[in-house]
Amino acid sequence: MTAVPATFAPEDLLSPADFERAAAALLPAPVRDFVAGGSGTELTLAANRAAFDQVRIVPRALRDVSGCALATTLLGRPVSMPVATAPVGYQKLVHPEGELAAACAAKEAGIPFTVGTLSSYTLEEVAAVGATTWFQLYMLRDRDQSFDLVRRAEDAGCAAVMLTADVPWMARRRRDLRNGFALPDDVVAANLSAGTGSAAHRAASGESAVARHTAAAFAPSLNWADLEELRRRTRLPLLVKGVLDPADAARAAECGVDAVVVSNHGGRQLDGAVASIDVLAEVCTAVAGRCEVLLDSGIRSGVDVLKALALGASGVLVGRPLLWGLATGGTEGAHRVLELLATELRDALGLAGCSEVGAARSLRTFRGPWPADRTGAAYRENGGVEGTVQR
Score class of each variant (00 low, 15 high):
residue 289 G to A: 14
residue 342 A to C: 05
residue 348 A to L: 03
residue 264 N to D: 04
residue 215 A to R: 07
residue 182 A to R: 03
residue 70 L to S: 08
residue 327 A to H: 02
residue 112 P to V: 13
residue 152 R to H: 01
residue 353 G to N: 01
residue 335 H to T: 03
residue 363 L to Q: 05
residue 102 A to C: 12
residue 327 A to C: 02
residue 159 A to D: 02
residue 198 S to A: 10
residue 281 A to P: 15
residue 190 A to Y: 02
residue 336 R to Q: 14
residue 14 L to H: 10
residue 79 V to M: 09
residue 174 R to G: 13
residue 221 S to H: 13
residue 334 A to Y: 00
residue 271 D to G: 11
residue 321 P to N: 01
residue 114 T to V: 06
residue 21 R to S: 14
residue 279 V to D: 02
residue 49 R to E: 11
residue 142 D to F: 00
residue 247 A to P: 02
residue 56 R to T: 05
residue 55 V to E: 13
residue 387 G to Y: 14
residue 4 V to I: 14
residue 67 G to N: 03
residue 233 R to D: 07
residue 35 V to G: 14
residue 68 C to N: 11
residue 71 A to H: 13
residue 60 R to N: 03
residue 182 A to W: 05
residue 5 P to V: 08
residue 41 T to I: 14
residue 156 A to P: 02
residue 321 P to G: 02
residue 53 D to M: 12
residue 184 P to Y: 14
residue 280 L to H: 02
residue 321 P to A: 01
residue 6 A to V: 12
residue 228 E to M: 11
residue 348 A to P: 15
residue 204 A to D: 14
residue 275 A to S: 12
residue 121 Y to I: 12
residue 359 A to D: 14
residue 194 A to R: 11
residue 233 R to E: 10
residue 218 F to M: 15
residue 153 A to C: 01
residue 85 T to H: 06
residue 177 L to M: 03
residue 287 V to Q: 00
residue 380 R to I: 14
residue 101 A to L: 05
residue 130 G to R: 03
residue 63 R to F: 04
residue 58 V to D: 09
residue 178 R to C: 11
residue 64 D to R: 10
residue 288 A to L: 13
residue 98 G to K: 05
residue 7 T to S: 11
residue 256 G to R: 01
residue 227 L to A: 06
residue 101 A to H: 08
residue 170 M to A: 08
residue 227 L to K: 07
residue 59 P to S: 12
residue 186 D to P: 07
residue 116 G to K: 06
residue 184 P to N: 10
residue 368 G to R: 07
residue 105 A to Q: 04
residue 328 T to V: 06
residue 296 D to Y: 08
residue 170 M to D: 03
residue 231 R to V: 14
residue 297 S to E: 00
residue 84 A to N: 10
residue 364 R to F: 09
residue 10 P to L: 11
residue 121 Y to M: 13
residue 294 L to V: 11
residue 174 R to I: 15
residue 174 R to T: 13
residue 80 S to V: 00
residue 102 A to I: 04
residue 374 R to V: 13
residue 339 E to K: 08
residue 278 D to T: 10
residue 276 S to N: 00
residue 135 F to S: 00
residue 18 D to A: 06
residue 68 C to Q: 09
residue 318 V to D: 06
residue 289 G to N: 07
residue 256 G to T: 02
